[in-house]
Design a protein around this nucleic acid. Structure first.
Lengths: 191, 191
DNA sequence: CACCCACTATACCGATCTGTATAGTCTACG
DNA sequence: CGTAGACTATACAGATCGGTATAGTGGGTG
């Protein structure tokens, strides 16, 4: 990734997320990044590809962030129980949204603007959600093997709801609220 | 509302919801509705106003649908308890999404495309969410007065999460799943 | 019959959209 | 020193954007 390409992707990400994908033109992205359209098209080929790389980048960053967060938990607490790891997911999400996200989930927002299921960005969006559901389900299985899927879905609903509520700013700190609710859920089901 | 205006609003609603607001031009709306752009601008004045009326219409329909659903519960069961009324909200949402909505919540999706908080559509979006939160909180208060707000928020998170999950089609019938989870929540808190 | 109003049809405005072309500058490397 | 590649600057093509103007049609009402 050349320096200009990096600046372009960064500017595109910021603008796409804050204003929406269709509302942002490539001229604005180029201007904001201090890059010419020529360079932009030499590196990315099309706006659609730029959108794809924006979402792929955001997806990768979130997964890395969450993975690292969970690894750090493992480093602090030698043998954290499953409930602690589930709650750590909500903690990570809270830290992430506080820093990177004031308009909700970029995947959900992008999905609102992409109608065609054959759009190359589509598998990235659904892929991240499936990954999160799998993660929740796997962790839930360590709490109550028999109800792993059910519990995983519940955690997924709370988490997605919290991201939406955070974006719409309906009430304060919904991700923390979702975390507390997850804790209750685990107390009921676990042990 | 003249006949042509009605057709235009209907076509605009369908297109805005399915393809996104910025992705749909007024020429397409006019063509789809069998209406000229002249008529469209005579009736609505601007695309922005058309967007506002689309959201206001959708908001009003949903509130009327839910209100009627709860009234019918009251008619069947003379004195339904609060838990039954809360679960009826999820039932209504399930019926609504099955019929009107395959891409998630139109308010959330519109919010993804509207960055400016001073946009006239903004209060409609936040208004509906606030209305839902108030409704959940009020009903929750009849279950456990002391934890009305906390319980109301939890129900809100589950409900919003279910709408997102429905739109992304992550797993089957997430609204029903959210309803079952709400039932559990009420059993823990209630009585 | 005359009038009004919602409507259609069509052509156009300026602005902006994605995408491309040409020409030239800077820097790192062999 | 010379070359290659990443870059800037600028201009433009073709399409579409939101929005407007003009002219004419059809049905209902006084």
């Amino acid at each position: 990734m050349t320096p200009a390409a990096g600046r372009a992707l960064e500017a595109a990400g910021k603008l796409f997320y804050e204003r929406g994908i269709h509302a942002v033109g490539v001229d604005l992205i180029a201007a904001e990044a201090g890059v010419t359209k020529k360079t932009l098209y030499d590196r990315f080929g099309s706006k659609e590809q730029l959108v794809v790389e924006y979402l792929a980048d955001r997806d990768e960053r979130w997964r890395a962030f969450l993975t690292r967060w969970l690894e750090e938990l493992e480093a602090r607490d030698a043998e954290p129980d499953a409930a602690a790891r589930i709650l750590a997911v909500f903690d990570a999400s809270r830290a992430w949204t506080a820093e990177h996200s004031t308009k909700g989930c970029s995947m959900v927002n992008a999905h609102a603007e992409i109608s065609d299921p054959s759009h190359p960005a589509h598998p990235i969006i659904t892929g991240q959600k499936r990954w999160m559901l799998d993660l929740f389900t796997r962790l839930a299985g360590e709490v109550d093997q028999g109800r792993a899927e059910e519990l995983g879905r519940s955690l997924m609903l709370l988490h997605e709801g919290a991201l939406v509520a955070h974006g719409l700013q309906i009430f304060d700190d919904p991700v923390a609220e979702a975390g507390r609710r997850a804790r209750e859920l685990l107390h009921v089901h676990g042990r």
